[in-house]
Computed example of a mutant assay.
Amino acid sequence: MELRIEGMSCGGCAKSVTKAIQSVDSAARVEANPAERSVRVETSAAQAAILRVLEQAGYPATVS
């Protein structure tokens, strides 16, 4: 899934986003690009669960 995260602007943000996603699915593959504020996620978790955990972490996301 492709996500847009407006609040992700640096490497530290990208690490926080990755950690949040992997708290739902520890095997998730996450490719974060802070410059483009985009994240590509390969996961078996439900999209709603990923969006919810990002919201809770302070990084609300939209599906792009």
Rank of each mutant, 00 (worst) to 15 (best):
M1I: 09
M1R: 10
M1S: 13
E2C: 08
E2I: 07
E2G: 10
L3M: 03
R4P: 02
R4L: 14
R4M: 10
G7A: 07
G7N: 13
S9D: 08
S9M: 10
G11N: 08
G11R: 05
G11S: 11
G12F: 02
C13G: 07
C13E: 07
C13P: 01
A14F: 00
A14P: 00
K15D: 10
K15H: 08
S16R: 04
S16L: 08
S16P: 11
S16Q: 13
V17A: 06
K19V: 15
K19R: 15
K19P: 05
A20K: 05
I21W: 01
Q22P: 10
Q22T: 09
S23Y: 09
S23W: 06
V24T: 13
D25N: 10
D25S: 00
D25C: 08
D25M: 02
S26H: 11
A27E: 12
A28R: 05
A28G: 02
A28D: 00
R29N: 12
R29S: 14
R29M: 07
E31Y: 03
A32K: 01
A32E: 00
N33H: 14
N33T: 09
P34N: 07
P34R: 07
P34Q: 06
A35D: 08
A35C: 09
E36W: 09
E36Y: 04
R37Y: 05
S38V: 07
S38K: 13
V39M: 03
V39D: 03
V39Y: 00
R40T: 15
R40G: 12
V41A: 01
E42W: 12
A45E: 02
A45C: 04
A45Y: 04
A45I: 08
A46V: 06
A46K: 11
A46G: 13
Q47E: 13
Q47M: 14
A48M: 03
A49E: 13
I50K: 01
L51P: 06
R52I: 02
R52S: 11
R52T: 09
E55S: 11
E55A: 12
Q56I: 07
A57L: 03
A57H: 11
G58Q: 11
G58L: 06
Y59W: 00
Y59C: 10
Y59G: 02
P60H: 06
P60E: 11
A61H: 12
A61N: 12
T62Q: 15
S64I: 12
